[in-house]
Computed example of a mutant assay.
Amino acid sequence: MGQLWRYIKTIMGIIFRHPITGATIIPILPDGRIVLIRRQDTGQWGLPGGIIDWGEDVLTTVKRELSEETGLDLLTIRRLVGVYSSPDRDPRIHSISILIEAEVTGTLAIRDSLEVLAVEAFDKDHLPLGNLSHDHDRQLVDYLQGLTVLA
């Protein structure tokens, strides 16, 4: 499987020659807790988000991904936390992540069980930092330190 994936990544790189762009969300509930998802592919916790579909803007992607992965609705964007573009930030492919902090509302629910195993809200002091998917450890630490990052 590893050999096949390297081959697919190489072909995609040749065809597209551009990184894939996505939105990653730090969903903040009214009580201040941060919502994370447990990913189906790795079993790791991470932030919700996904690829910006053709014809979508970032705001539409944020609303769609929040709904699909967490069951939550967007109230408002609080701030742009950063843009993460390191070629190795996502082990699957070169992707750019636009990280935003968002006020959200609703009831936690998984609507996309192909991608998400669990959804849970964590107090800032109890985030499962240390083994999050992709570069989400770095993204959450940057956020908690109040940074705005271009990396």
Results as ranks from 00 to 15, higher is better:
K124D: 00
S113R: 13
P19H: 02
R39D: 07
T148G: 01
V141K: 12
I100H: 06
Q145L: 15
N131Q: 09
D137P: 09
G106M: 03
L140G: 13
L144F: 08
R38F: 01
F16R: 12
S113V: 06
L36A: 07
G146I: 11
R92L: 13
L80V: 10
S85C: 02
I14G: 00
I96D: 09
S67Q: 11
N131C: 06
D137V: 03
A102E: 06
P27F: 05
T42W: 02
Q3H: 14
G22L: 03
I11E: 11
M1T: 04
A102H: 08
E56C: 07
G13Y: 04
S86N: 14
G43R: 05
I96C: 07
I20N: 00
R33D: 00
I8A: 07
L129C: 04
R138Q: 12
L59V: 14
T70M: 10
H136C: 15
D125Q: 13
H18A: 13
Y143A: 04
L75M: 10
Q145I: 00
S113I: 08
W5V: 09
H136P: 10
I34M: 03
P128H: 03
R111F: 10
R6E: 11
Q44R: 15
H136K: 03
L59Q: 11
L29G: 01
R89I: 14
V104C: 11
L129T: 05
R78V: 14
G71C: 05
L36R: 04
E115F: 12
T70V: 06
A102V: 11
R111I: 00
P30E: 04
I28M: 09
E69W: 11
Q139S: 09
G2R: 08
S133D: 05
T148E: 15
